[in-house]
Design a protein around this nucleic acid. Structure first.
Lengths: 203, 203, 203, 203
DNA sequence: TATGAATGAGCTTTCATTCAT
DNA sequence: AATGAATGAAAGCTCATTCAT
C-alpha cells in the first residue's frame, strides 16, 4: 500500500510545511519535492496531481485528528464534558502543529469548488463526532430536547472554525487552549444546557 | 471620484457575475471586461490590479450590506430582537443575490493571505454591528453580564458564516430565511439569554 | 481577418524554417516565436495550439501550391501535357523552397493520426486536380477508357511523393526537374497512353 | 544471440500491438513492457533505447516480409507475373496483420529524420526485390528497354505505399487484394509492357 | 538475468498587465 | 478616457532511462 511507504509520509509532511510557509498557490510541486528529498517525478508515483496532495494530506491529518478526539472523548461521562474535551483537544492539537493549522484553516480553502466539495466530504467524519455528542446530550437531558442537531452542529463547527481562523490569521498571539472553556460555555448554553437546572438558575 | 462613474459600477457588477459563474481563478480579467462591456485596459483605469477588483467589490457590497442591516436593526427595541433582525436580514439579502453570496462565501476566500487580511479589514464593519448588539444586550440585562464579547461575536459570525457556506455549497436547496429563528435561538441562548427568566425555565 | 495580418505570415514563415531545421518535435514554440520576432504568447493570438500552426501552415502553403499548379496547367492543350506541367511545376516549386519541401515531405507526417487526417483533408484539393486531368485524358481518348481514376490517382500521387521524399531525404543532390519527364512518361504510360497509337494522335 | 531468446520476441510482438493501438508517441516503454509481461528495465537488456525497438521491429518484420515475397515470386515465370505476385503478396500479408500494417504505414514515420534514414536502410531489401524484377523484365523484353530502373522502382513502391496508406487510414473498409490486379496493370503498363505483344511491340 | 522504484530534464500554454494609438 | 494587441514569466506533469537489489 502506497500510504505505508516512507516516501508517502515524507511528501505529505513536506507538503504541510511548504504550503504553510508559501501558501497553496506558491507551493510549487518542485518545492515540495525538494523539501521531501525526492525528485519531482516521484511525487507523481504517490499522487495523481498537485490537488490530490492537498486532499490526501487533509484526509490523513483529519483522520488522525478525528481519531485523537474520539479517544480523548471516550473517557468523559456526559455530552457536556465531551464537548469540552473536543474543543480543548481541537485547540491543543492545532496549537501543537501550527503548520497544519495554517494549512487546514487557510490554504485548503484556497482551492476551487470541486476540491472544496471533496474536502467537505472528509470533514464529515469530524462533524459526525459533533453530532453524536449532541444526540447524547439530548438523550441525557442536558441539552434542549427540541434541539435541531444539524443547526447546532453548524454553530459548534462554525464557532470553533472562526476562533481557529482568527487565531491563525492574527499571528497566534493568544493562548488558544485558554479560550476553550469560554467557547465551551457559549456552545453548551446555546444547546440549552443550564448549569444548575433545579436550583438558582441563571449562570 | 472614480467610484461614482458608471464604468466603475459596470465593472464591479460584471465581476460579481463572472466570478460567481466561473470561480475566482477562472474569472479572467478579459472575461470581466467583456461582461462589463469595456476593453481589458479600461479595467486598469479603475482598478490597480485584479486583486483590487475583488477587494473593492467586497468593500462596496459589504458597505451596502452593513448599511442595510443597520437600518433594519434600528427599529428594534432590544438586543435580542436586533440579533434576530440581523440574522434574518443577512439571510434574506444573501438569498436575494445568489451571485453575491457565492462570491462572498466561496470565491473571496480562494485568495492568498495578504488579500484575506484585507478582506477581514472590511469585515470589521459588520463585526462592529454584532459587537454593539452584544454590548447592548449585556447592558439591557438580557445577556450574561460576564459575556466575553469578542468570543460571542465569533460564535455569532462563525455560525452565520457556516450556515451560509453550507447553503451556498449544497446548491441553495433550502429556505435560508426559514432557519433564521432557529439560528437566532441558539445564539441568544449561547449569550445567556433565557426566555422566561423568572418562571419555569427550559424552553 | 487574422490570416491577413502581418504577424500571421511572419509566424507561418518562421515555423517553416524552424520546423525544417529542427524537426517538428524539436521546433519549440519559443523557437518559432523568436524566429518570427514575436513573444511566445503572441503565437496563441493567431493559433490555437502548436498543432494548429502545422495544419494552418499546410493549408496556406498547399493552397498557394495548388493554385500555382492550376494556373500553370490552364494553358495546356490536353491531359498528357497537363500532367507533365503538374509534375514539372510540383518539382520546380519544391526545389525552389527546400524548407517547405522538408516540412511537407517529412515533418508534417511526424504527427499523430488525428493530425494526419486533417492534413489529408487539405491534400484533397491537390488530388482533385489530378483527378480532373485523368478524367479529361480519358475523355480525350488519350488514356485507357477503363482507367480506374482513383487507382491512377494513387499511382500519380504516390510516385511523385516517393520521388520527392527520396530527394529530400538524400540531401537534394539531384536535379528534380530533370526527372520530371521520366516520371511523366511512366505515369502516362501507366494510364494507357501510347506514344504513336498507330495514326495521328501523340502528345 | 539475443534475438533468439523468447523475451526478445515477446517484446517485439508487444510493441507492434501497443504501437498500433496507441500510436508511437503514446506507446510508452512501460506499456510495451506490461503487454510483453516483463519489467520496464528488462526492455533495456534487449534494446538500447525506445527507438531501437522500432528499428529492430522493422528489421525483423521486414526481413520476414521480404523473404515471404521472395519465396512467392520464385515460382513465377516472368517479370510481369512476378510483379503481380509481389503486389498480391504485399497486400495479402498486410491484410492479414493489421497491426503490423498500421505500424509500418503510419507509426514508423512519426519519427525523426535519423530514425527515418535507418528505416530506409532496412527498406532497401524490399526495393532490391523490385529492382531485380524490373531488370529481369527489361532483359526479357517485357518492359521498355530504356526503362529507368530507379525511377520505375519509385513508381512501384510509391504506388503500393500510397494504396496501403490510404487503406490503413480509411479504416480498411476495402478488399485490398482485390485491387492488386488493377495496381499491377498500371505499373506494368508504366514500365512499358503491352498486352498484345504480337504486333508492334516496342515501347 | 530480471526487477521496478526513482529520477529530472524539458515544454506548451495561460493570463495579468502594459502602452502605443 | 479608452482601446486591445502584445507581452513573457511561470509551472505542472510525462516518461525514457538508470541502478541498487
Amino acid at each position: 500500500m502506497k500510504r505505508d511507504k516512507p516516501k508517502f509520509k515524507q511528501i505529505i509532511d513536506a507538503a504541510v510545511v511548504v504550503i504553510a510557509e508559501n501558501g497553496y498557490h506558491q507551493a510549487q510541486v518542485s518545492k515540495i519535492a525538494k523539501k521531501a528529498g525526492v525528485a519531482d517525478g516521484t511525487i507523481y508515483l504517490y499522487f495523481k496531481n498537485k490537488e490530490s496532495i492537498l486532499i490526501t494530506l487533509f484526509e490523513e491529518k483529519m483522520g488522525v485528528f478525528a481519531e485523537k478526539i474520539r479517544e480523548e472523548i471516550a473517557g468523559n461521562r456526559d455530552a457536556v464534558s465531551k464537548l469540552l474535551t473536543l474543543v480543548k483537544t481541537h485547540f491543543r492539537e492545532m496549537s501543537n502543529d501550527l503548520n497544519l493549522a495554517i494549512v487546514m484553516q487557510l490554504e485548503v480553502r484556497q482551492t476551487n469548488l470541486d476540491l472544496r466539495v471533496k474536502i467537505n466530504e472528509v470533514l464529515k467524519e469530524y462533524l459526525h463526532i459533533i453530532d453524536s455528542i449532541l444526540m447524547e446530550g439530548v438523550k441525557e437531558g442536558l441539552f434542549d430536547e427540541n434541539l435541531d442537531i444539524r443547526m447546532a452542529r453548524k454553530m459548534i463547527f462554525g464557532t470553533i472554525d472562526e476562533v481557529m481562523t482568527h487565531w491563525v490569521m492574527t499571528g497566534q498571539n493568544q493562548d488558544l487552549e485558554a479560550n476553550a472553556e469560554k467557547v465551551h460555555q457559549l456552545l453548551i448554553r446555546g444547546c440549552g444546557y443550564q448549569k444548575e437546572r433545579s436550583s438558582t438558575l441563571g449562570q
